[in-house]
């Protein structure tokens, strides 16, 4: 499975990269929204996005754009945002699921395995 992960926090990126290395999944990691836009989304089975990228909430826009361009696969928000309003905004933007930071590694595994099918 090809997974795109957009994350600006190197620690989180590192954690997920290390997990992916232990699995059969192929991970493409980028650290800002513009870089993600330059890629062809359709080649990925699952896209994971940190909503707050470089202190701006570019994630919302990115999810919207993906859906507008007809991307049908799950788009997961991985974010430190936790207020009910913010979670709602995520779903409104087109995210399939919101994984709130901090998360324990089994939660991440669950999400990837559930939505990655």
């Amino acid at each position: 499975m090809r997974i795109l992960y957009i994350e600006d926090d190197p620690n989180d990126a590192n954690l997920i990269t290390r997990y992916m290395q232990a699995t059969q999944h192929e991970l493409v990691l980028v650290s800002d929204a513009n870089e993600a836009r330059s890629l062809d989304a359709q080649q990925f089975d699952l896209i994971m996005v940190d909503v707050v990228l470089n202190h701006t909430r570019d994630g919302y826009k990115l999810a919207q754009e993906l859906r507008e361009r007809g991307y049908q696969q799950p788009v997961i928000a991985v974010t430190g945002l936790s207020l009910p309003k913010e979670i709602e905004a995520c779903y409104d933007a087109g995210f399939s699921f919101v994984l709130t930071k901090p998360f324990e590694i089994p939660q991440l595994v669950n999400v990837i395995e559930t939505y990655g099918k």
Partner: peptide, 11 residues
């Protein structure tokens, strides 16, 4: 506050 905690809990 949550971001650094993710390192603690995640790792």
């Amino acid at each position: 506050l949550r971001t650094p905690l993710n390192v603690v809990i995640g790792y």
